[in-house]
Write a protein that binds this DNA or RNA. Structure first.
Lengths: 335, 335
DNA sequence: ATTTGTATAGAAAACGTTTTCCGATATTCA
DNA sequence: TGAATATCGGAAAACGTTTTCTATACAAAT
């Protein structure tokens, strides 16, 4: 059953060297011999053993993937569709490396070297727990998604964050809102910092009052959105609109508003971030900043592929544009 | 940087054999020597090369995964959380094998052998395109999720399908519904067949009229649910309740009903299947058959792990119970 | 006819481990 | 004290490839 290169060589009446040359489309094999070997390979359904090949070449045709937040990453499942597409194009399989403990002294670099991965994808927003310095210096081609680490062989890709929030603020401003609240995700996350910066800058540019009471720090979850909105509702002079750093936060806001008897969008305008499937089906349908998850995933793998094949290319820093999808959760300010 | 077993041996003043024994906790090493070697391993942050180990052992500490439907699998992202948990427990990494074309003559068995995976997970409902016969006979431990293939080294795991639908039918019957429609997923899928069987049996047991006009074959998508409901609405004597084979189908039904001016649950009762996050947030909140995705994923990996370590164990056929979650989309029949 | 050059093909080393086997040393027992 | 027996440690083969290097055969050029 399990054929190897020796069996093929014997069956074709040549040496294993010659078979190897045929497999890898190398010269120095006569057309006649090549054809014969190819026929045998086809007949026997022979596929060379990746493991052995990987051992001698130090390559594995595999991209390793770490998720800093586990699979609870809010839109992992969307990005991964893009990954899949680009993986097919570029010929890699994807190794999801779960055998590491965040925060332990276990070295993710060692794990990558041990697995011989050709490149690494690191995903998420929990930057503090892992020893990325070591990764950056390892020389293993690396792409970070939603973290802005760079190094001689490490780049990153993320959605447009600052301008996205600016656009959202401007949109609300056009609707005559002045009291615009902002519910962030984790403040120590890269995207959290960026989005907050976008909010700050836009408020400044439009000369809107910057009120610390209108700013809440959540954790991307629905619960944190709900809690934040409850706090806003206690204010005597509460916000008339809320920009949320995730659709899940927005969902919590919607729920808190409904409980308080506020109508969205008539009494309160709400903008989400992400554009997950659910945002179409909320009541009312959520106006949100749509991330282009497919492109995010595709570009991550394509960039990695380029970095692997062109060691001298500087690693990319890619910002993927977003799109403000206007649905039914925003209206002209009632005041 | 990239240490190997020779470096460790040299540093510890022993042979590579001894280092290997220490790494693998084998006997015939004195406590003193063992301690010294362990110290060096720790100091150098040495991790043995998986690839080399895999080559000699024919193992890889890796579970291969094929998705017959790609990542558009409706609840892949949920199951995968359970996978992750059990993978950590059992010590495997997960290799997502994308380098195969469904329907081509490319052999997934060869791919698995080539990658040296210790076990394989096959996911989804498109059974017709792949050559599973070969897989079943390969002797590679295999678990199918949502397909009922079995073999000497292949088992499967799926949610309770027949009884789940029976429970749903009985529930509607208790609410005095007689005209109960059923919107299936792909009929050629295992779960589709099973769920339809559940519907048929329950209708029979309760002596409810079995009307072919009340049965629609969709594809698990929202669009197919929408289309099916549109058809039901054309009937002079339409159903008063609908059981859907997925929450997405139910979402389409809800939309079609709303467009037709029907109130759910007052005019029409709707039951979904899956219990995806979104089902909590529909209008009205959807009564649905909740699958236990976490257990599905966990058990899949644990079973695989057992099969790998106990070659004589008969492969399991596991049915994971579901739970009818009653929310706001069903009411007593208005007639 | 001798040299030079050019395909073609194969032998052997290498990749980093595990595993089998054997030798050496220490321990036990008569 | 000598033999039998554990225990420990290492040499070498093996896993299935790629890669480098060498050998052969034959054609072309002198």
């Amino acid at each position: 059953m399990a054929k190897n290169i020796h069996d093929i060589a014997k069956a074709a009446g040549v040496s294993i060297t010659t078979v190897s040359k045929v497999i890898n489309n190398r010269p120095h094999v006569s057309p006649k011999t090549r054809a014969r070997v190819q026929q045998v390979i086809r007949d026997e359904q022979f596929i060379p053993n990746h493991t052995a090949r990987g051992l001698v070449q130090g390559k594995s045709k595999t991209i390793g993937m770490f998720l800093t937040t586990g699979l609870t990453h809010p839109f992992f499942s969307r990005v991964v569709v893009g990954l899949e597409k680009a993986l097919k194009e570029t010929g890699y399989d994807l190794l999801y490396l779960v055998q590491f403990d965040m925060g332990s002294d276990y070295s993710i670099v060692q794990h990558c070297l041990s697995r011989n991965v050709d490149g690494v994808l690191i995903f998420g927003f929990q930057s503090h727990d892992l020893n990325f310095e070591e990764m950056l210096q390892s020389g293993i081609p690396t792409i970070f998604i939603d973290m802005d680490f760079t190094g001689p062989r490490a780049g990153y890709i993320t959605s447009e964050n600052i301008d996205s929030i600016k656009t959202a603020v401007r949109y609300l401003h056009q609707l005559q809102h002045q009291r615009i609240a902002f519910i962030n995700g984790h403040l120590d996350s890269y995207v959290g910092k960026q989005r907050f910066e976008g909010y700050r800058l836009a408020m400044q540019e439009l000369e809107l009052p910057y009120d610390p009471g209108y700013i809440s720090i959540g954790d991307f979850s629905k619960e944190s959105g709900y809690a934040a909105m409850k706090e806003f509702l206690k204010l005597s002079n509460g916000p008339t609109s809320v920009i949320c750093c995730s659709d899940m936060i927005a969902l919590g806001v919607l729920e808190a508003a409904a409980e308080a008897g506020l109508s969205v969008p008539d009494d309160l305008s709400v903008i989400g971030f992400d554009g997950i499937e659910m945002s179409k089906h909320t009541q009312p349908a959520l106006t949100t900043i749509q991330q282009d998850f497919l492109t995010l995933g595709e570009q991550a793998i394509r960039s990695l592929n380029e970095m692997i094949h062109s060691p001298n290319l500087p690693p990319p820093s890619i910002i993927v544009p977003t799109n403000l999808v206007i649905r039914d959760s925003c209206a002209v300010c009632p005041l």
